[in-house]
Write a protein that binds this DNA or RNA. Sequence first.
RNA 1: GGGGUCGUAGUUCAGCUGGUUAGAACGCUGGCCUGUCACGCCAGAGGUCGCGAGUUCGAGUCUCGUCGGCCCCGCCA
Length: 594
Amino acid sequence: MGELRRTHDCYSITEESLESEVTLMGWVHRRRDHGGLIFVDLRDREGITQVVFAPEVNKEAHEKAHSLRSEYVIAVRGKVRRRPEGMENPKIKTGMVEVACNELRILNTSKTPPFPLDEEKDVSENVRLKYRYIDLRRPVMLENLKLRHRVCQEMRNYLSAKGFFEIETPMLTRSTPEGARDYLVPSRVNPGKFYALPQSPQLYKQILMIAGMERYFQIVRCFRDEDLRADRQPEFTQLDMEMSFVKEEDVIELIEGLIQAIFSKTLNLDVRPPFKRLTYREAMERFGTDRPDMRFGLELVDITDVASKCGLKVFNTVASTGGVVKAINAKGMADLSRKDLDVLTEFAQSLGAKGLAWVKIKEDGAWQSPIAKFFSEDEQRAIMDKLSAASGDILFFGADKRETVFKVLGELRLELARRRNLIPEDTFDFVWITEFPLLEYDEDEGRFKALHHPFTAPMTEDLGLLDENPAAVRSRAYDLVLNGVEIGGGSIRIHQQNVQKKVFGALNIPEEEAQEKFGFLLEALTYGAPPHGGIAFGLDRLVMLMAGRDTIRDVIAFPKTQKAQCLMARAPAEVSMAQLAELYLKPDWKKDQQ
RNA sequence: GGGGUCGUAGUUCAGCUGGUUAGAACGCUGGCCUGUCACGCCAGAGGUCGCGAGUUCGAGUCUCGUCGGCCCCGCCA
């Protein structure tokens, strides 16, 4: 670089800088070599500026410029001048001007990049991930990370202004039962013992409330050793927070303000609170899921009562054995072909349905369907009324156990919407889901498990049910759902030891085990624990939705593949026997050998 | 653990019922070019068809296995 100092970035060179001498540093985005005249689009983090190399401006620089190639790193000194009339490029912000180069310094050369980084061309993700440093140079990726930064910044500003302390909690902590699989870290100085990387700072943040911090937040990495998805990484980032002396309304209000601030400051969008709210029960009944996408209709409608009396045996049986029959009215979609219906049926079956009954409503309102003959005229009318069905519509039925019907029709609803482009883009539709069940029966383990986590407070009016009907107890938990994606979840916590013990009882966690695993929290609860509650946000998911991407990998600098590997650093990797020995670990390659 | 899908030049892809020399575009290399901006024109290089077996006179193409990417189910308090 010599004595050169960067004076501008490649975005801020405008007509205001005309005639001034500037020094730019960046990457050669594209070179157009006309022999006698060379144009280089110089790119840095902020944008692109056209640099002109002409022999009459500087002969040496012009000659050197012939050797420039894609992604060379250069420093350029020159005068800003207006482009000749008719030569402006309205597509870029700096398109009215250009820099006439007096001095060119090649700061570094570059091999030809393995993929083009100019366009939004689809390059396979394994190549992108292997050369992530090149992928991240692409303006789209840069923008994503910039947005992520600004979202974090706004979170810090907003919460600091509201009196929150940013406090760090340990990454090396202890493994806890319940919940996801832990990532374990062996302890060298404690042979045979292991730390676990945190799945969330849940216990620590509650302890911080007991410690009198009153308001805490942290933008924190969390780890879960489970299989990956487009919106799930083994390590992910969460905005974690907790407040003392609050009820549900306080947390919800604060978060709505936070979300509003984030959207207005970063996207200049007004998402005005209060957000919609649904109880868990209502969400399940109407949308078949606890994270409904509210951007379109196609709601589920219960027709169990009609179905129980009709002539279709499958429906009767389901209705009389505690199952449900529900239907979706796919408005105006009666033109779906036989083949479409076969594909949809397969889709339903892959989700656990035995089949997918459908009814097309003909011009005259009559039913065209394999199951039409099992319904009397009255029954047909009753179903049409419930679903506001008219000619041109097609009705889909799900009859099974509750969970199966919810899942199948819930997914079918999304699939139909996708097929017909019913989901508006660039819309942000928030909904709070409240009154979750506290517990959920786990068939495999034959016991109740916490739906949220075991520190979630039960609703006061349901406390009495804890012994005789645990499944009916509702919790003081709330999730925030955006466009069908769960972006946040939290609850008012248990702050009384006797209630905590009761919940452990319902979870069938023996006293000794509770003491062994969470003893420190239980004890802390006896030393003046204030009422408290909080929430945690999936930062990756939130930014993904804001950036309009469909995987969180696009808003994480160095994500892992579905096999939880980093293709760039090639992690995980084998370690030496010496390293293992130091940790008192003895490899056992049984799985390989057999 | 299960289902689906993909893997051909540096990149994105085409490649028919198996057929002899595996193509295109972009990129790359060299040459020409003083107003381009997806510069243009001319010439050229570039391939273990993911890997391994099998079927066949013959395999990019068919079969089996295997590795890897992605999507989904299970799992993710």
